[in-house]
Design a protein around this nucleic acid. Structure first.
Length: 553
RNA sequence: GCGCCCGUAGCUCAGCCGGAUAGAGCAACGGACUUCUAAUCCGUAGGCCGCAGGUUCAAGUCCUGCCGGGCGCGCCA
């Protein structure tokens, strides 16, 4: 609906421009927004205020002339100038009700838009080191990345999701060492030091290691035992991570191993290419990448003096790999503590001849865990953290996802576990789900009364929907495509949660004022159709958030 | 010291490219179940948008400087 209005305003603009002898005037960027106050109409535009100088007119004067033209479109009931030069437009109610038809013709695809034009996008997220279970902070990134991927798909992009596994290096050695130390403890042997990873989960990993490889593994030479432990523990922990993510309804198209990158020579290859471009130089025996001129604070080492490549080198190779795979846009969801990394990867892309703007990094701010009113600091190394698993078991998938998604990702948040548990019944997600269940239940009642529910479209006269509560709801339902598009553009899904809350509120409001199933069969059919449109909208919106839409609660 | 994020109702947070009288949920208070689910609805109350300047028809929004909170500034990953 908004796009139809925008077209009308544009064509009015060109007409007026011609009248004024300004043939080459362009409307440029202007707003067609939904006013906060209903009395201002269905849509408002600020175009007259923006373009008045170009026409050498006062805003209201230009607005008057535009109004005369806009009015010619039969879509509008009224078009008027208001305030400093806003043009307020009201759509004929019947146009709204008839537009409801698109919800049914699109069905499960209602809300989808073509904005992406099939462009290839890769969304990389979570990518937690396989050295411990996912904690609550990873959960936030997982919910965000997965939902961004869903929204981008709905917006017409070809989306690939990926988890990058840092399965090499010092941390994996530490993991292996922790496993061996815990295993020796379990066998009553001299542990041989403190485990680098102190979390209790390491004891379970060690137990699994002993069951799988046998006690004899401990008698192997240190190097062999370590390699065995490292490999076993890495797989075991990654398996747990996959299970947690599956249960959180987060599924990846690909799990990309850093180790595979090394083995395929990708890292050396990337360094060679960048060297050939003159982007890498040698100093103090190490190789440095020129990142300074892309906004970094200093150049960065990619290969140490001892010949070992750095973490950055692998990441460069990984992003080169993404570039080579032909993605138009690369979305990375990172923890906020990695923000210093953005200039480095952008520098890499630039050096490789790619467009640094292809990389869109969304930083996820810290999740502070609150328990008994106390903020608990978390650290994988010390083993003090609340796992995603624990939250899922306590709070449930739906509420947890909603909780993470209802806030902007770049604001820190406190996750008050006690509150989330205690007040789970009052979590706003239930408000939306309840609206959906209510829709379904109305159909049950309607069928009991012998009505087809939802009714076949041919039997429905939508123009019977004339109550303000009905029209308000219809207007909101038809906003979904706009919301999806703007969420996709910003890589930011949280407006969708607000939209669904608003939609549910308007539905509950309608429900309390009007009976759907009555003796008036024609009206009942029209209202049942509205209920079905609401149900489809809520269902599709919840799906984008990865939240269930129950038929019964 | 430098860089990034945040500061809006008692609490948790929305407020997009500047637009009309700054919103939602929770908490508080008062109402509504013989009627399709009361996990709902209606009403009341609650604000120096951190502070100070600047830009303009218009600033919570943009710019500058402070104040407060968080994070980052490794030949760690």
């Amino acid at each position: 609906m908004r796009s139809s209005v925008k077209r009308s305003v544009k064509s009015a603009f060109y007409s007026v421009a011609q009248e004024c002898g300004l043939e080459d005037a362009r409307p440029g960027q202007f707003d067609v927004s939904i006013p906060k106050e209903e009395k201002f109409g269905d849509f408002a535009t600020n175009i007259a205020m923006l373009k008045a100088p170009a026409f050498r007119m006062k805003p209201r004067e230009l607005a008057d002339r535009l109004v005369a033209r806009i009015k010619e479109t039969p879509l509008f009931e009224s078009v008027e100038v208001a305030g400093p030069g806003f043009i307020n437009m009201r759509i004929k109610p019947v146009e709204w009700t008839l537009a409801l038809d698109q919800v049914f013709t699109k069905g499960a695809a209602f809300g989808h838009v073509e904005a992406g034009g099939g462009e290839k996008v890769i969304v990389e997220f979570v990518s937690a080191n396989p050295t411990g279970p996912l904690h609550i902070g990873h959960g936030r990134g997982a919910a965000l990345g997965d939902t961004i991927a869903r929204v981008l798909r709905a917006a017409g992009y070809q989306v690939h999701t990926e988890y990058y596994i840092n399965d090499v290096g010092l941390q994996m050695d530490n993991l292996g060492r922790s496993t061996l130390i815990r295993a020796r403890e379990l066998c009553g042997l001299e542990p041989g030091g403190e485990p680098p990873y102190k979390g209790e989960y390491m004891i379970d990993v060690a137990r699994g290691f002993l069951e799988c490889k046998g006690r004899a593994a401990l008698d192997l030479p240190e190097e062999k035992a370590l390699a065995l432990a490292r490999e076993y523990a890495g797989h075991a922990i990654l398996g747990g991570i996959r299970t947690d993510l599956d249960d959180f309804r987060v599924h990846f198209d690909q799990w990309f191993s850093e180790d595979s990158l090394h083995k395929a020579g990708g890292v050396e290859d990337a360094i060679a290419v960048l060297s050939a471009q003159g982007e890498i130089y040698e100093k103090d025996g190490a190789l440095w990448l020129k990142t300074l001129d892309t906004g970094d604070e200093k150049d960065r080492v990619v290969r140490r003096a001892n010949g070992v490549t750095t973490y950055l080198a692998a990441d460069i190779a990984y992003h080169k790999n993404k570039l080579d795979r032909g993605y138009h846009t690369m979305v990375n969801i990172w923890g906020a503590d990695h923000h210093g990394y953005i200039p480095r990867i952008k520098a890499t892309l630039k050096a490789l001849g790619g467009d640094p703007d292809k990389l869109a990094v969304r930083l996820v701010q810290i999740v502070n865990l609150k328990r008994g009113g106390q903020v608990v600091a978390m650290s994988t190394r010390s083993g003090v953290f609340t796992t995603l698993r624990e939250i899922l078991d306590d709070v449930g998938v739906d509420a947890t996802r909603y909780f993470f998604l209802m806030r902007s990702s770049d604001a820190q948040m406190d996750f008050d576990v006690d509150l989330a548990k205690k007040q789970s019944d009052e979590n706003p997600v239930y408000y939306i789900q309840y609206a959906h269940a209510r829709c379904s239940n109305i159909f049950v009642t309607a069928r009991e009364r012998g009505l087809a529910a939802p009714p076949p479209m041919a039997a429905v006269d939508l123009t019977l929907l004339t109550e303000p509560e009905e029209l308000r709801l219809i207007r909101k339902l038809l906003e979904l495509p706009d919301v999806v598009e703007s969420c996709a553009r910003a890589f930011q899904p949280h407006p969708l949660t607000q939209y669904l809350t608003d939609t549910a509120a308007l539905f509950h409001y309608f429900y309390h004022r009007h009976r759907v199933v009555t003796d008036n069969k024609a009206l009942s059919n029209a209202r049942l159709t509205l209920v079905e449109a609401t149900r489809i909208t809520l269902h599709n919106g919840l799906f984008l958030l990865g939240i269930n839409a129950p038929d019964k609660m």
